[in-house]
């Protein structure tokens, strides 16, 4: 929709990723996804849905030993087939990632300055210029006295502050595409708001494309323009954030919304019965059929493909029917 007007940064098409062995179904099964310049796109799913694997694929990172088919194009180049040198260049300059746990993702024995500038330095930026850029970035993410912060070590920062540092480090190479994998899940709620505020402001200022991976539909809706919902390695629904809340088309999306506790409502959260499909199972039909209130015989027999229903992409045989709660 919006992607046609703006330059598309990330185009994933028919991406299927299989693990080396032991799994009955692929981790990703025919995933297609677009992120345009300046756009915030949400990728929502529960554990094991494949959302993290999808976002990592945009960096050319696949689970070791896994095989992938399909294409992952960043600014037109296929990440899956490009040379190692080009891939390094891509990670340095074009695509950056903010991980969930800053404490686990930042080398604890190196200074903050090293972390923020290492990409720049590897790309040939002189030390003095790299340091100046790092100071600006730390200031931009709201770290007071950035010059001193550069000489400090990770353990001297709180989780929220360290996540700001990670965002600064991710933005150092001036990427056009930012991948954020559950960037605030490890943080307190009030800290989450601060980090999100910084992330969205910088993303808007720089016109960076953002792929925001989260398990939290409400957070995705607050951050993103458009949301993909994943279940068992497949995209099951894609539409605007408002549309998703107003009228979810896939019963899984509706189930997730009903399961999310709401502060203002007296209505208690309602669980989705059953449990997610493990990698050891490969149901023939729709992966959600076993947990679905609307499931019909055809749902267990034939896997629904993504199709457009009233302008919404949804993979459900019964998408035309209203979902009754």
């Amino acid at each position: 929709m919006t992607g046609t007007a703006r330059e598309t940064l990330l185009e994933i098409d028919d991406l299927t990723v299989r693990l080396a062995s032991g799994a009955a179904r692929p981790v990703l099964d025919g995933v297609a996804l677009r992120v345009a310049r300046g756009e915030s796109v949400g990728l929502v799913g529960e554990s094991g849905s494949g959302k993290s694997v999808t976002s990592r694929a945009a960096l050319g990172l696949l689970p070791a030993g896994a095989t992938a088919t399909g294409t992952v194009r960043v600014a037109g180049d296929d990440v899956l087939t490009m040379s190692a040198a080009r891939l390094r260049e891509l990670r340095r300059r074009e695509v950056a990632m903010v991980f969930q746990d800053p404490r686990a993702s930042i080398n604890p024995v190196r200074r903050i300055g090293d972390f923020v500038t290492e990409g720049l330095r590897a790309g040939g930026t002189p030390a003095r210029a790299a340091r100046a850029t790092a100071e600006e970035l730390l200031e931009a993410v709201g770290i007071t006295d950035p010059r001193r912060a550069l000489r400090r070590f990770p353990h001297e920062f709180s989780g929220g502050m360290l996540q700001r540092v990670m965002i600064a480090g991710a933005l150092a190479g001036g990427p056009r595409l930012l991948l954020a994998d559950e960037p605030t899940t490890a943080l307190d709620v009030t800290t989450q708001a601060e980090v999100i505020a910084i992330l969205t402001r910088l993303q808007a200022e720089r016109g960076t494309g953002l792929l925001f991976v989260t398990h939290d539909l409400d957070l995705a809706a607050a951050v993103c323009d458009r949301i993909y919902v994943m279940y068992a390695g497949r995209i099951v629904e894609e539409q605007t954030a408002e549309g998703l809340f107003a009228r979810p088309r896939h019963p899984y999306t509706a189930g997730l919304l009903a399961a999310t506790p709401r502060m203002g409502s007296g209505e208690p959260p309602r669980g989705v019965p059953g449990r997610p499909v493990s990698l050891a199972e490969n149901p023939e039909g729709c992966a959600f059929a076993a947990r679905c209130r609307l499931a019909a015989p055809e749902c267990a027999a034939e896997r629904p493909a993504l199709r457009l229903v009233d302008g919404v992409s949804v993979a459900c045989h019964r998408a035309e029917e209203p979902i009754h709660d």
Binding site: D218, A222, G264
Partner: peptide, 21 residues
């Protein structure tokens, strides 16, 4: 109030929450 506001919801304004904090 800050804790309540911090929970993502429709019309959520993270920048204001950050200022309140």
């Amino acid at each position: 109030r800050l804790l309540l506001d911090s929970v993502p919801h429709p019309g959520w304004d993270p920048a204001r929450i950050a200022a309140d904090r």
